[in-house]
C-alpha cells in the first residue's frame, strides 16, 4: 500500500461562469521513504496540489489517502514548508519554532521542549540567530527557520512547496544540500514541488511533471537512478544526468509550447512588423 495516495483528485475554484478546474484527475502514489519531485510551470496548480495533500484544501472529487486513511484536515504528521516562509514576524526564531514544538509535543516538559528547539535550530546552523526576528534574517536564513519549524514536529512526511524558488542561486544550492543532508538522516517520505528541473534531479528519486492548468494533470514520471549522495558539480558531467535532464526539459518545452499556441490562437494579431534592429531571441523560462 502506498504511503500517500491521490485517487482521481480534481479541484476547482470560483463559482458559476468563473469556475475553473485547476487540477483534474490527479493520480499519484508515493511509497514510504521516497523523495518525489513535482516539476511544473508557475500557475499550473502545484500549490493547490500540495494544499490538497497537506489538508488545507479538500478535493472536489476523488480522495487523498495518507497511510490508507482519508485526509480530513492538516495534521502534525505532514509537515509543510511554505514558499514564502510564512514565519510569524512578531516572534523570534526560538518562538517561531517553539510554537510548533509546543503544539506537537504537548506532554513534553518545558525544558525538553526548549532543548528540542535548540537542537533543531543548531541543525540548520542558526544558533547565533535564535533570538532574532524574521525581519533581521536573510531570505535563506528565513527558509532555514521554516524548514526547522516543519521538521521539529517530527512529521512522518515533509511537503515542500517551492521552498527555494525565492532565493538567489548560491543560497539555493547551499540549502538544497542542507535539506538533502537532513533528509538523509532518517529518509522520511518527502514531496518537493519545484520549477527547477535540476533541483528535482539533484534531490528526488522520482520526478513527475505537472501539465499546466487549467485542468492540470500529471505527466509521465521519470525515475532518477543516480547514486546518493549526489554532488551538484559532478552531476554536470554525468551522462545519465544529462540524458534525464534533456528528456524532462524537452517534455516541458513541448507542453509549454502547446499551451502557448493554444493561447495565441484566440488572438488576432495586427499585420504590422516591429521596427527593431536587434534580432529577436527566444528565452525559455519556467519561472
Amino acid at each position: 500500500m502506498a504511503y500517500i495516495e491521490l485517487r482521481n483528485v480534481s479541484k476547482s475554484f470560483g463559482t458559476g461562469k468563473d469556475r475553473t478546474q485547476v487540477l483534474s484527475n490527479i493520480n499519484l502514489e508515493i511509497e514510504e521513504g521516497e523523495f518525489v519531485a513535482i516539476v511544473g510551470f508557475t500557475g499550473s496548480g502545484k500549490t493547490t496540489l500540495i494544499n490538497l495533500i497537506s489538508g488545507l484544501l479538500m478535493p472536489d472529487e476523488g480522495q487523498v489517502l495518507f497511510k490508507g486513511e482519508r485526509v480530513t484536515g492538516p495534521s502534525h504528521e505532514r509537515g509543510v514548508i511554505f514558499q514564502n516562509y510564512s514565519l510569524l514576524p512578531w516572534l523570534n526564531v526560538r518562538n517561531n519554532v517553539g510554537m510548533a514544538v509546543k503544539e506537537a509535543f504537548r506532554k513534553m516538559s518545558k525544558k525538553d521542549r526548549n532543548k528540542r528547539v535548540e537542537d533543531y535550530v543548531e541543525m540548520v546552523n542558526l544558533s547565533p540567530a535564535i533570538g532574532k526576528l524574521p525581519k533581521e534574517l536573510s531570505g535563506g536564513m528565513r527558509q532555514r527557520v521554516s524548514v526547522t519549524r516543519a521538521l521539529s514536529m517530527s512529521p512522518d512526511m515533509i511537503l515542500m512547496d517551492e521552498p527555494l524558488s525565492a532565493l538567489d542561486a548560491l543560497t539555493r544550492g547551499n540549502l538544497q544540500q542542507e535539506i538533502l543532508n537532513i533528509w538523509n538522516k532518517d529518509k522520511k517520505t518527502a514531496l518537493l514541488i519545484t520549477n527547477d528541473v535540476d533541483e528535482g534531479i539533484l534531490m528526488a528519486d522520482r520526478i513527475i511533471p505537472l501539465k499546466p492548468g487549467p485542468k492540470a494533470t500529471l505527466g509521465p514520471e521519470y525515475k532518477v537512478n543516480l547514486a546518493r549522495p549526489r554532488d551538484k558539480a559532478a552531476l554536470n558531467h554525468n551522462e545519465d544526468y544529462k540524458l534525464l535532464r534533456n528528456g524532462i526539459m524537452e517534455y516541458l518545452i513541448q507542453i509549454g509550447e502547446q499551451r502557448a499556441s493554444k493561447k495565441d490562437s484566440n488572438h488576432v494579431l495586427p499585420d504590422i512588423k516591429p521596427i527593431v534592429k536587434i534580432p529577436p531571441f527566444r528565452r525559455i523560462s519556467f519561472n
Binding site: 488545507l56 492538516p74 495534521s75 511554505f82 514564502n84 510564512s86 510569524l88 503544539e103 519549524r149
Partner: peptide, 11 residues
C-alpha cells in the same frame, strides 16, 4: 499565510 501556518501546526 498566517492562518495556514496555524492550521498546519494544528494550533
Amino acid at each position: 499565510d498566517y492562518i495556514n501556518v496555524a492550521k498546519v501546526l494544528n494550533l
